[in-house]
Design a protein around this nucleic acid. Structure first.
Lengths: 173, 173
DNA sequence: TAATACTTGACTAAAATGCTTGGTTATTAA
DNA sequence: TTAATAACCAAGCATTTTAGTCAAGTATTA
C-alpha cells in the first residue's frame, strides 16, 4: 500500500465524477478546471482507472467519463491501487530470500501493517464520502439561511471531520 | 500522511533497535547487515529520528543508537512522520486559495481521510509489534517441538496476521 | 594512540511525480 | 460532409524523492 499525492488526485477525480456524472458523462477538461489537475495527467490516471473497470468512457462531443460501478462499490483502496500499479517487491519479493529469519520477521510485521491499512481503506467507499458531502451541502444552505459568515464555516468543517471520524472508526461494531 | 518504502525502512530499523538495543547500544553497521539497508541511508534516517528525539546516540567504540522512549510510547505514525519531513502543501496550503469551494470540499475530505490513517497508525506502537514478535517466537518453539515443518509456518503467519488484525481493529471498543 | 562509530555534507543514479506537446481516432452536430 | 469535441496514445521533460556513495570530520574508548 502506497499513499502519495497521485492517489489523492485519483480519489478527488473519482469523487468529482460521482458528484457530476450522475446523468451525462463528465469530460476530463471539466474535472481539470474544477479540481485544478492538468488534463494530460488526468488522462494518464483515467487510463488506469478504466483498465481497472472503475470508469467507462464515451467518446465524441458530449462524451466523457462515468462511474462503472455504484459509489458504494468503489473503495478508496481500489482507486489508489489502480493508479499505483503493482507495488509488490518487498525486497525479498514475497517468500524469497530472507536469509536470517530476523529480516523475514520485521518484513512480515510490515506487510501485516500494510494489509491493515489496505483493509481500512477498503471499507471506505465513494458513497461514504458522498454522504459527508451531502451533509456539508445541507449545512451550507443552513448557514446561508442563518447568515453566519465567519464562524459557521469552521464549525461546519469541524462537524464534517467529526462525523467522518465517527463513521470510519465505529465501523463494524 | 505519506506511506512509502522510506517509512518502512525507518519502522524496520526502529524495530531492530527495540529488539537488540535493550542493554547495549546497537551500531548502524549491525542494523545495516541484519536488515540489508545501506549504512549511509540509515545514517540519513537516524539523523531525522534523532532530531525527533526518538533515538539517542552514543559515540565511540561500543557505541551506537538506543531508543529514547519506551516501545509503548513510540508510534508507527511518529516514526514515519519523522523521516518524511513536513508533508504539508495540500495545493491550497491549509486554508489558502480554494477558489470554487468545490475543490475545497474534496480537498477537505482527503485531509480528513489522511488524518484518519494517521490516527490509525498512531495507535500502533513498537510495543505492539514486539508482542507479535514474541508470539511468533513462542509459536516457532512449539512448532519445532511438534515437528510440523511444512504446514505450521503458514498457519503461524496466518495466526500472526489474524491476531494483529484483531489487536488493531478492536482498539478502543 | 588507534580503532570505533557517530556526524556532516556534497554528490550521484535511478525512479516517481506531474506536466507538456503533438498527435490519432471516434462521435456528434451543424 | 465537415468541423468540433473529447477520448486515446506516445514521447519527452523538469522536478522531486529515493537510495546510495564518498569523503571528511569528531567524540569516545580500549
Amino acid at each position: 500500500m502506497r499513499l502519495t499525492t497521485k492517489g489523492r488526485y485519483a480519489v478527488t477525480a473519482m469523487l468529482d465524477l460521482a458528484l457530476h456524472a450522475q446523468v451525462k458523462p463528465v469530460s476530463l477538461a471539466d474535472i481539470s478546471k474544477r479540481q485544478k489537475i492538468s488534463l494530460s495527467y488526468l488522462e494518464q490516471l483515467f487510463s488506469k482507472l478504466k483498465q481497472q473497470a472503475l470508469v467507462l468512457s464515451i467518446r465524441g462531443p458530449g462524451g466523457g467519463y462515468k462511474l462503472n460501478k455504484h459509489p458504494q462499490e468503489v473503495s478508496v483502496a481500489h482507486i489508489i491501487d489502480a493508479v499505483n500499479e503493482s507495488v509488490d517487491s518487498t525486497s525479498c519479493g514475497g517468500v524469497g530470500n530472507c536469509q536470517e529469519g530476523e529480516m523475514c520477521l520485521t518484513h512480515h510485521l510490515w506487510t501485516d501493517l500494510s494489509a491493515q491499512i489496505h483493509t481500512f481503506l477498503d471499507d471506505i467507499t465513494l458513497e461514504h464520502l458522498l454522504k459527508r458531502r451531502d451533509i456539508k451541502a445541507v449545512a451550507n444552505r443552513q448557514t446561508e439561511h442563518h447568515l453566519l459568515d465567519d464562524v459557521a464555516p469552521l464549525t461546519l468543517t469541524s462537524n464534517l471531520s467529526n462525523s467522518l471520524t465517527r463513521t470510519l472508526t465505529n465501523k463494524k461494531g
